[in-house]
C-alpha cells in the first residue's frame, strides 16, 4: 500500500504554513496602514463643488482675510460659511458674466443657498468649537493646512482622533501669538515667545484637555 501523500505534500504544507503566516502578517499590516492612508482619510481629495472656488486666488492673490467670509470663527463654534450675499459683495461688479459664477447669481436671485460640500468634516459625535481654538492661539493652518495654496479646497490633515489628541496632549508647539493666527505665511521667528511662554499666556495645557468630554459631549 502506498503512502497517502506524495513527497510534494510536505512542500505544499510548508508553503501553506508560510502563506498563512504571510496572510496574518499582511492582514495586520493592512489593518495598521489602511486607516492611515490619505485615501481613507480623503486627504488631498478634490471635492466637486457647485462653483470651483479658489482659496489660492482669494487669499494669496487678493489678500482677503479669512474672517471676511468666515465671519463667526471668533465668536461661535462653527467658522461660518459665507452666504451668497458675501460672494456678491464683489461679484455684483466683478466677473458679472462669468459662466463659472452662474450658480452664485442664481442662488442670490432665488434666495436658495449654494449647496457647498463639506471638505473638512468631523464625525457627528465630535464636538468642535472654532472660537476656543482661535482664542487659545491655534492658527487656521494647524487643521486646514495651507489654504492659500489651494486652487480647489482639499482636506489637508487626517483629522483622526489621534491627530486631535496629538495636539491636545501637548498644545504648546502649535500655539501662535494672537496676531499670527490668520497669518498664512507665519513662521516662528527668534522674537516669537517660546511655546511654553505662549501656553502660559493663553492658560493652555493640563490633563483636562484629554478628558473624553472635551470632544464627546
Amino acid at each position: 500500500m502506498a503512502a497517502i501523500f506524495s513527497p510534494a505534500a510536505n512542500l505544499a504544507a510548508k508553503l501553506g504554513l508560510i502563506g498563512a503566516a504571510g496572510l496574518v502578517l499582511g492582514g495586520m499590516s493592512w489593518w495598521w496602514l489602511w486607516p492611515r492612508t490619505d485615501y481613507v482619510r480623503h486627504n488631498s481629495w478634490f471635492v466637486e463643488q457647485p462653483v470651483p472656488f479658489s482659496h489660492q486666488h482669494h487669499v494669496a492673490g487678493l489678500g482677503i482675510d479669512c474672517r471676511f467670509c468666515h465671519t463667526t470663527v471668533e465668536t461661535a463654534g462653527d467658522a461660518g460659511m459665507p452666504p451668497t450675499y458675501t460672494c456678491m459683495t464683489c461679484h455684483s461688479q466683478v466677473w458679472t458674466n462669468a459662466a463659472m459664477l452662474a450658480p452664485v447669481r442664481e442662488s442670490l436671485a432665488n434666495n436658495t443657498p449654494i449647496p457647498w460640500r463639506r471638505v473638512t468634516d468631523l464625525p457627528d459625535y465630535v464636538y468642535f468649537n472654532h472660537k476656543i481654538h482661535i482664542a487659545k492661539g491655534v492658527g487656521c493652518e494647524s487643521c486646514h493646512g495651507t489654504m492659500q495654496d489651494m486652487p480647489l479646497s482639499q482636506k489637508a490633515r487626517s483629522l483622526t482622533m489621534g491627530f486631535c489628541l496629538n495636539c491636545h496632549r501637548d498644545p504648546a508647539p502649535n500655539l501662535r501669538p494672537p496676531e499670527a493666527i490668520y497669518d498664512t505665511d507665519w513662521q516662528r521667528t527668534p522674537d516669537t515667545p517660546s511655546p511654553a511662554a505662549l501656553a502660559q499666556q493663553y492658560h493652555v495645557g493640563g490633563r483636562t484637555l484629554t478628558d473624553c468630554s472635551i470632544c464627546h459631549r
Binding site: W31, W32, P35, R36, S158, T160, M161, G162, L165
Partner: peptide, 8 residues
C-alpha cells in the same frame, strides 16, 4: 489593544 488611529 491594537495601534488605532484614535490613539485610544
Amino acid at each position: 489593544p491594537y495601534p488605532n488611529t484614535m490613539d485610544l
